[in-house]
């Protein structure tokens, strides 16, 4: 077992997370991410466990919401927080169309 991830592994997880990282960061994360991953790997030591999953601590079933419109907001309220708008639309760099 090595004590570092490979550059490729770091770049792979950075890509999954959509976070750009520079060369210095790659080196740092090779060590730091490895430490974290080794820690979570300890789950593999647990071999005796029930198959029921606990998705949330809440045991009660949910109540559904009536199908009635409410809480609609005006676009003007959120406009100031949006980096780029054009009219009532939100602008982004062109979405490379597949």
């Amino acid at each position: 077992m090595t004590d570092k991830l490979s550059r490729e592994e770091v770049l792979h997880v950075a890509h999954l997370a959509r976070i750009n990282i520079n060369d210095a960061e790659i080196e740092k994360y090779r060590v730091q991410l490895k430490e974290l991953l080794d820690e979570v790997d300890k789950i593999k030591d647990v071999t005796n466990y029930d198959k029921d999953m606990m998705i949330t601590p809440v045991k009660e079933e949910i109540k559904m919401r009536p199908d009635v419109e409410k809480d609609t907001i005006s676009f003007s309220l959120v406009r100031d927080n949006i980096p780029h708008t054009s009219g009532n639309l939100i602008e982004v760099p062109v979405m490379i169309h597949e």
């Binding site: 919401r65 199908d67 009635v68 419109e69 409410k70 809480d71 609609t72 907001i73 005006s74 676009f75 959120v78 009219g87 009532n88 639309l89 939100i90």
Partner: peptide, 28 residues
């Protein structure tokens, strides 16, 4: 439906852009 799956904004086709939204629909 009258409203969206996980928010109570109207489910309507052809309305003015970004008029049928709640904060959830913008993932606030």
């Amino acid at each position: 439906t009258n409203t969206k799956m996980f928010s109570s904004a109207a489910n309507a086709y052809g309305d003015e852009a970004n008029s049928n939204i709640t904060l959830l629909d913008l993932a606030y």
